[in-house]
Design a protein around this nucleic acid. Structure first.
Lengths: 270, 270
DNA sequence: CGTCGGCCCTCCCGCCGCGGGAGGGTCAAG
DNA sequence: CTTGACCCTCCCGCGGCGGGAGGGCCGACG
């Protein structure tokens, strides 16, 4: 029987941390003295403590550590761990992208931005919509678009999305992805027939992957702000060239459409 | 002049976050209405906001972001950013190591551990000591050892270290690294002449780099606990083969010496 | 000119995993 | 039996963000 201090020395986990793991039900001491409350551990618990230690080094939340430890089946457990490793890799990828983008931002080369004012008529589409958080969008998008493509084998144009402004201001809001159709589709699963309203858009094209799309957003937004206009509705994105066309992200083309009030009405002299 | 909501849409930073950055002095609005407190931003602030966004994606703390933004000289600023990238790489390295170690821990193969009881006489050494935190040790060690090696060109044995138990139980404590000498060295810099006390050690050898050294610690500790004895003083490490000998970490050999009360006295029948 | 809905304000709380510290009980060696 | 090391619980703080309450401000309408 090891006291908490001895166990701490054997596992290199601090006493405080061991107590916390006890409270969280992660690492129950082999025996707890009823009157004094003293915790006593067993040498067999050392490997368990080390597994916890490793998982924490990987920033696995305590609840997930709990889940993993509770899982008896090694395969399922392996899958849970693998899932976390996948997320770590995703994060690494995002880190790499952020580094690259940061370096570009710090060496500012004047980017010439072509902005086009475009009148878009009302458009019948097949759509999948949801209320999502800002950081859930990337997880939500692929499934929604896959369902759309299955339901609409012959779209009448490139896919797109509408993103409510609250998504950015509040970090949560309404998002909708669509495929244009020539005639209204039948609803199935999450797919619905929707008619997008006509709008006037200020459009800029973002080249490449979406890691730096906020830069183009900012440039387009500056242009819109500098040329008057107020924003009128959710931002639109149109995926002219995307992962469906080429695996080379540098070839992707995404149009960003910023809805504005029609130019005639934007003359505010009245 | 952009309201905070408009600016939020342009930068994809939430309103709350923008307010926080204002409070932290990171991103001062171009104008703040005195009576209403309304924040108004300028389109020129968009790139600044995006730099902040990128740095935060890299988990750079707000205070450091502040430092970086305040730095006018691009070279110094680049150095600060590079420093953070270096830390990211270190962390990545540790993550990699933790993953590897975790996989080994989850596929437990019975490790046969050779433990030797060894009586170590008092030993004159040149030593560098400090009070350090658990996670500062790795940063502190190289400099201390380099200073030692400069002061002791012809050591009388392999280098080693003594680590107080509080270092693990409290996360902070006394650490000492040494080089054995044949006669007491003169003090210089942080180097001091010290005589290590005689002890009885339970010794196990840890092969390879130190990423998994806690596993060996645990195994040795189990052995000590299962064979009686109480711990008597700081743990010792002896670096038989280390980075000074070979760059191949798999060849490293580190002895872990767990001080125990002399075996005769460990008979607790009295 | 008043009203109303949307925007913005400040202030406080919660989250996670950990450390710090207060205040007090327990254990074992002398 | 005393002493000092050890252990206990409980509360607070950190950093960066979100949630929510409670209340002013703005501008487009009637």
């Amino acid at each position: 029987m090891l006291s908490i201090g001895e166990f701490s020395q054997l596992t290199h986990l601090s006493i405080r941390t061991l107590r916390r793991y006890h409270d969280a039900g992660l690492l129950e001491p082999a025996r707890v003295d009823e009157t004094s409350g003293y915790r006593y551990y067993d040498t067999e618990q050392i490997p368990v403590a080390q597994v916890i230690h490793r998982l924490r080094e990987l920033d696995v939340p305590l609840v997930d550590v709990h889940r993993i430890l509770r899982t008896p089946d090694p395969d399922t457990r392996g899958a849970l761990v693998a899932e976390h490793l996948r997320r770590l890799e995703d994060q690494l990828e995002r880190t790499r992208a952020a580094v690259a983008s940061l370096q570009r931002l710090l060496r500012p080369e004047p980017t010439r931005l072509d902005v086009e004012l475009r009148r878009v008529p009302a458009m019948p589409v097949a759509a999948v919509a949801a209320d999502v958080g800002h950081d859930e969008v990337l997880d939500w998008y692929p499934g929604a678009m896959a369902e759309l493509e299955a339901a609409v084998p012959h779209p009448a144009g490139p896919p797109g999305g509408l993103y409510d402004n609250e998504l950015f201001t509040d970090g949560r809001g309404h998002a909708l992805v669509y495929l244009p159709v020539s005639e209204p589709p039948t609803s199935s699963g999450r797919v619905r027939a929707v008619t997008l309203p006509a709008v006037e858009l200020a459009v800029a094209t973002h080249p490449g992957d979406h890691d730096t799309i906020d830069v183009t957003y900012g440039e387009l937004g500056s242009w819109v702000a500098d040329h008057t206009l107020a924003v009128a509705g959710p931002v639109r994105e149109i995926y002219l060239v995307g992962p469906r066309h080429t695996t080379d992200p540098t070839r992707w083309r995404t149009e960003i459409g910023w809805p504005v009030f029609p130019v005639a009405a934007a003359d505010r002299s009245g």
